[in-house]
């Protein structure tokens, strides 16, 4: 009994210590941001590995999600004779929810896990220590540009996901199922609001980008420097990011579309 209590207490203390280290880390990383403007090359390199390499999976998924929604939406709406509203349905679902959320989940799996593994391995092979001893601060030199790249990439990827998804819905709805092309676009334009829907969707994706990248670099930096430690940290990145995305999505949706 006492032992279980102790283990609970130990876990709680551990959790709060990690939380504290995570916050200290993000403060240091943010402090390192201004210096990056003088070294754009560092960011470009990371934008490539974080953003460009996630492009394919995001665009392909976006197109398929859009197509599935076109198909499902059509079958539901046609019963009410409202298949003209297909565009609205596809666009609103993508822009408000699926775009930011699914992109963030894919981003956590593709880019987040890669970031954690990379940083964790750099730690395990003493590259981070070596940098410190070369008087190069790894937080500013390694973590800060990766964080910024993730933060920039996420909203762009989410926008691409939504845009490609709308095209996928168009392809199925208009191209294959014969929904009127004009109705698809005009109903969409009439019902999707720039501020309420698109702007809020972009804000969501920015928040997700921040959180996922934060979790990824923290897990990598805080990983136990062994192969097992790095693999566990990578798993944790994906699990924690996914939970954080879904939880935050609920909170943000409640705040925004209330």
């Amino acid at each position: 009994m006492i032992n279980q209590l102790q283990s609970l207490g130990h876990k709680a203390l551990d959790f709060f210590q990690r939380l504290g280290r995570g916050h200290i880390l993000i403060v240091d990383v943010l402090k390192g941001q201004p210096a990056l403007f003088f070294r754009p090359r560092l960011i470009i390199q990371q934008l490539y590995s974080v953003g460009v390499l996630s492009l394919l999976i995001v665009v392909v998924s976006g197109f398929f999600v859009g197509m599935v929604m076109g198909l499902q939406g059509y079958n539901t709406l046609v019963d009410f004779g409202a298949e003209e509203s297909l565009g609205v349905m596809v666009a609103l679902t993508l822009v408000r929810e699926l775009g930011p959320v699914v992109t963030a989940l894919l981003f956590a799996g593709r880019a987040g896990s890669a970031l954690t593994a990379e940083i964790g391995l750099m730690k395990a092979t003493e590259q981070l220590s070596a940098m410190e001893m070369m008087a190069v601060d790894p937080i500013r030199r390694v973590l800060a540009p990766r964080f910024l790249a993730g933060f920039i990439s996420m909203p762009l990827l989410a926008a691409m996901f939504s845009a490609v998804g709308v095209l996928g819905g168009y392809f199925v709805g208009v191209g294959l199922l014969g929904v009127d092309e004009g109705a698809y676009w005009s109903q969409m334009q009439a019902s999707v609001d720039l501020y309420e829907d698109i702007y809020n969707g972009v804000i969501k994706s920015i928040v997700f980008g921040f959180v996922v990248t934060w979790i990824a670099i923290f897990e990598g930096y805080d990983a136990i420097p062994t192969s097992e430690g790095v693999s566990r940290a990578t798993t944790r990145t994906v699990v924690h990011s996914s939970l954080a995305i879904l939880g935050l999505d609920f909170i943000l949706t409640a705040l925004m579309f209330n």
Partner: peptide, 19 residues
Amino acid sequence: LYELRKRMGMLFQNGALLT
């Protein structure tokens, strides 16, 4: 500290080269 470290070199066990 970082100024001082510029004047110190350290050779790690397995080199710790940036891969």
